[in-house]
Each structure stands twice: as C-alpha cells, then as structure tokens.
C-alpha cells in the first residue's frame, strides 16, 4: 500500500507536474491525496511541497478534498502532524472539527449521494453524442471499461461520472479512477468482474487483456475490443436509448440529476420488461429468467442478446 501511495503521489513523479488533488481505489479502500506547495511558511523552512494522504472506506472526493485542505492548513500553520492527528480523530469520532480560518468541518454536510451526482453526464454526452450508448451498454452489462487521458484530472472527472449512468445499482466500487500499469494494481483490477479504470499511460491501449471498451478521452474515441463485440451488438433498443440520452442531455432546462433520472427511468423500464419473463422459484429466492418466455416474445436478435446478457449482469439467470 505504501508503495502504491507513493506512486500515486505526484511528488515522487519525475516530471514534476503538480496535481493538487487525486483519488482512487485499491482493493476496496479509497485513497485521497492532496498536494500543497509551501510558500513562506514560518515553521516549514526546508519543505517546498508536501502531500497528505487519507484512506477511507467510502467514495466521497468532495468531502475528503475539503477535509484534507483543512488538514493542510493546519500543518502549514503548526508544522507538526500532531495537530493534524487531533483534527482527524475529532472527525473520526465526532464527525466535526474546527477549521483554522472560518467555520468548522462537518462530515454530515457531505452526503454520499451528492458525491455520486457531482459529475456531469451532460459533458459526457456532449463529447461522445450517440456513442454514449456504448458506455451505457458496457456499464449495464458490467463490462470492463478503460479510460485514457494524459491528464489525471480529466480522467478522474470523466470516470467518476460514468457509474451515474447505471444509477439503479448505486455502485461506485467499480470505479478505479487512477491506475498505473503495475503488476499489483492490475492483479487487483482483474479480480473485479466489471470496472471503470482510468489510466494516464498511453501504453494501456496495447493491453487488450485489460478492457472490453477502451475510451481515448484525449481524442474522443471509443473502441470495443474483439472479445466484447458479440455481447455488445447494438440494436434498435440501443438506438432508442441513445436518442433518449442525447435528447435529455441536450435539453438546456434539465439539470444533470434530471438527465440521470431520465436514464434511470428508461433503465427501470427495461428491467421491468425483463422481469416480466421471470418466474419466482419455490425457495423465495430471487426471480429467475425464463429463457423460453424470452424466446417466444420474438425480439430482434440484437435486443434478445442484450436482454439475455443484461439478465446475467443483473443476476437473474437460472443456475
């Protein structure tokens, strides 16, 4: 973990680019790193930069960004980690701590749902247009998505928004927004079924074993890998969804959360449609898909294929 955090921290990097705030996930624990440049500090004479790393179990970049900023200010003022430790423990036990300048930090102010909604779906749609439906499909089917951009900030902003496309799952643990091409990290990544991974190393495009869908953010390109072509076949249903997404996102009156709501409504519709083919088995377990019923409905093959894979992703198959 120590190596990993050192690698993520921009101070050990050789190209000396400063990233004020980065975050990511490694084996289900989140890390948040804030880096500050020291200018004319009375207590830190020999320090030019320092980073504060927080690890937590929950995904909430805004909360931890604010919190680490406060901690940074404390460190800048006192030049000792002890004060920081006090504040941290105060937040941990009481959920509140006094900030140096004004007011106090309240962890209650930062709701997880707010963090989920922080990204802008509209931006994604405006960048990719109809192709957004590929991302939507990949997320619905729990496929592996790799996002590449040379700037880590862009990658993080983009990747954190993607899970909002499948709002009904509320699952942000699939997000690995800052991954290096390092054996340990890739190993951890491979234990997940579907994920969204952000890379800043362009070599990732040649690692076809890592992704089903490759998003080159810098050039606005989406590539579907060979092995994922079959389940990702697009049909009329996808066109419909895509049009809905684009329409909703292009409406200037609608906010991001409303767009997400639209998409999630459509998703629910599909899921109810799907659940109409299910039958409840005797043990009171989850409903399972009746494949024969699906077949009898005579959907177009692409739609049928999609629904079937979706059922697998939603764990509605009979085993």
């Amino acid at each position: 973990m120590r190596d990993l955090l050192l690698r993520k921290c921009c101070l050990t990097d050789e190209n000396k680019l400063l990233h004020t705030f980065v975050f990511g996930q490694y084996r289900r624990s989140w890390f948040y790193i804030t880096t500050v440049e020291v200018q004319d500090s009375a207590v830190l004479k020999k320090v030019t930069h320092f980073s504060i790393v927080l690890t937590a179990k929950d995904f909430n970049p805004e909360k931890y960004a604010a919190f680490t900023r406060i901690l940074c200010r404390i460190y800048l003022k006192h030049g000792s980690p002890v004060k920081m430790m006090e504040s941290y423990i105060a937040v941990l036990t009481k959920g509140i701590c006094q900030s140096e300048e004004n007011g106090s930090f309240l962890s209650k102010d930062f709701d997880a749902r707010k963090a989920y909604l922080a990204g802008s779906v509209k931006d994604i749609v405006s960048q990719f247009g109809m192709e957004t439906v590929i991302l939507f499909t990949a997320l619905m089917l729990k496929k592996r998505i790799v996002v590449y951009h040379p700037r880590i900030e862009a990658v993080q902003e983009f990747t954190r928004t993607l899970p909002a496309l499948v709002w009904h799952r509320q699952d942000w643990s699939i997000l690995h927004s800052y991954v290096h091409l390092n054996d340990d990290e890739l190993e951890a990544l491979k234990t997940c079924t579907g994920y969204i991974a952000g890379f800043i190393d362009s070599k990732v495009s040649s690692r076809a074993d890592l992704y089903d869908v490759y998003v080159n953010l810098a050039e606005s390109e989406i590539t579907i890998s060979q092995q994922a072509k079959e389940p990702m076949t697009m049909g009329k249903l996808h066109k419909e969804i895509g049009q809905l997404i684009v329409q909703s996102a292009e409406d200037p009156d609608k906010s991001d959360s409303q767009v997400i709501k639209d998409i999630s409504l459509k998703t629910k519709e599909i899921l109810t449609n799907l659940s109409s083919f299910t039958e409840v088995s005797d043990d009171g377990e989850k409903p399972t898909l009746n494949f024969e019923a699906l077949k009898q409905k005579r959907f177009p093959p692409a739609t049928e294929n999609f629904l079937y894979h979706l059922a697998a992703a939603e764990q509605m198959l009979k085993i």
């Binding site: 289900r28 079924t193 494949f291 697998a312 764990q315 198959l317």
Partner: peptide
C-alpha cells in the same frame, strides 16, 4: 454461451456474497 454467462453471474454473486 448460457453456461459461460451463468458462470460469470455465479462469480459475481459469489463475490458479492463474500463481501
């Protein structure tokens, strides 16, 4: 294909349940 899908689903379920 069905079996493969079931397998992946089972794996997903397993992981979820483990967690």
């Amino acid at each position: 294909k069905v079996l493969e899908l079931s397998l992946s689903q089972a794996e997903g379920v397993l992981r979820q349940r483990q967690l």
